[in-house]
Design a protein around this nucleic acid. Structure first.
Lengths: 161, 161
DNA sequence: CACTTACACGAAAAATTCTTGCATTTTGCA
DNA sequence: TGCAAAATGCAAGAATTTTTCGTGTAAGTG
């Protein structure tokens, strides 16, 4: 499917195409072509090239969590005790492997990890904290922020144009 | 295109379809059908129904920020001074309107907002803080976490099955 | 300057996928 | 049990995606 390979040069056509696709990738290539002034095959070739280069990492449907029984989104800042490479890597793997952990970032600052967690109930979150934080003796402490409003959600990257 | 309307009942077919689409929405309906044991038209009708109901909120391409010149991801916790409805709404609108603000959540806890910001340089972030936080006299303080590793990124919602 | 190579393009054809119409089956409920 | 509503599969039709092919342009070379 997708490749990770080397970075490729992108011109303004590519950026215009990306800007459309990152908002709606069901847009027909013909329509994209009309918008950016290229033929559909040209658009298609550029898309495939960007997919192979990993510029386009995935094509996904965005689901409303509330409508599938997962109405609670929570942010967690995690601070660890020891920051050895091994322990950090272990933590990364563990966090990444948990389905409820929708996003995980290793960060600088007053915390070491920031997690975005999606759960059906606060009870589920409490159980998760027991397993993930209290059950990990490299976790010094964690701070919880419960989302009351998902004001803006997405993965749109700001692009010139 | 998409509707927001009322929530609809989802059976295990729907969930199985969603589980495929939220990982790869370029999967042909025929393949989805073979996987979940339905005909392609049946799959198609279910998808359209879920799109109209807003269960599927969008279909998007995920772009690697680093390859389009936006290599820096930053988390910001924002604490406001006054939490009146008007000021909160104003803040929501302002944050949401900024392209560099990829995600914005209004939260409970030690902060009021959590932002995910994508920028090309630290200079750009600094300029943004000046505009968004120092330039807003309802912002009491903000805390910055710079991502060193995007361990897990996505919008995948944990689904039964 | 002539020549060649590499590369991207558009047009058209081919292949695949998506969409719709329709008869049938299943589901929910009285 | 029987009926009405809803969902299904099949097959045809429409649209999109993908490939093929010939052309044009730009870079590099003798």
């Amino acid at each position: 499917m997708s490749k990770s390979s080397s970075s490729i040069p992108l011109d303004s056509f590519d950026l215009a195409i990306l800007n459309i696709l990152q908002r709606d990738n069901s847009t027909p290539q013909r329509v994209i072509g009309e918008t950016v002034n290229l033929s559909a095959p040209a658009v298609q070739r550029r898309i495939r090239r960007m997919e192979e280069a990993g510029v386009i990492q995935a094509n996904v449907a965005v689901i409303d969590p509330a409508q599938v029984g997962q109405p609670i989104t929570i942010f967690v800042e995690v601070e660890v005790i020891s920051e050895t490479a091994e322990l950090i890597d272990a933590a990364k793997r563990e966090f990444a492997s948990v389905p409820e952990v929708q996003q995980c970032y290793y960060v600088t600052g007053e915390a070491d990890f920031v997690l975005v967690i999606v759960v059906p109930t606060m009870g589920a979150y409490e159980a998760l904290t027991r397993r993930l934080f209290f059950g990990n003796n490299n976790v010094k402490r964690f701070r919880t922020f419960v989302a009351m409003d998902r004001v803006k959600v997405g993965l749109v990257v700001p692009l010139p144009g």
